[in-house]
């Protein structure tokens, strides 16, 4: 039987992800109404705060060694604007 080769479709993959990412960024930045500082009461509530970093690190730690995927966890930071 012929040997198995690894597919090298990295470029097409990168273009796909770049396209999706650019679309999402543009729709996020352009399409959203600006929220003024005095309108951010809900964002400053306890349940809207980011998960503790060490807790999130442990959660990621459980999965990253038992699955074939990593990454994408950095999305949690920022965006509150309530400080």
């Amino acid at each position: 039987m012929a040997d198995t080769n690894v597919k090298t479709d990295g470029r097409a993959l990168a273009k796909l992800f770049a396209g999706i990412g650019a679309t999402l960024i543009l729709s996020c930045c352009v399409g959203c109404v600006r929220v003024k500082p005095f309108e951010r009461e809900a964002h400053s509530r306890k349940t809207m705060q980011e998960r503790d970093a060490s807790d999130a690190k442990l959660e990621g730690h459980v999965h990253e060694y038992r699955e074939g995927s990593v990454g994408g966890s950095g999305v949690g930071g920022g965006g509150c604007g309530c400080n």
């Binding site: 960024i25 996020c28 951010r40 809900a42 964002h43 950095g74 999305v75 965006g79 604007g81």
Partner: peptide, 10 residues
């Protein structure tokens, strides 16, 4: 006023 979101690429 009640929602926020985000995207990330790694």
């Amino acid at each position: 006023r009640k929602s926020r979101g985000g995207i990330a690429y790694s």
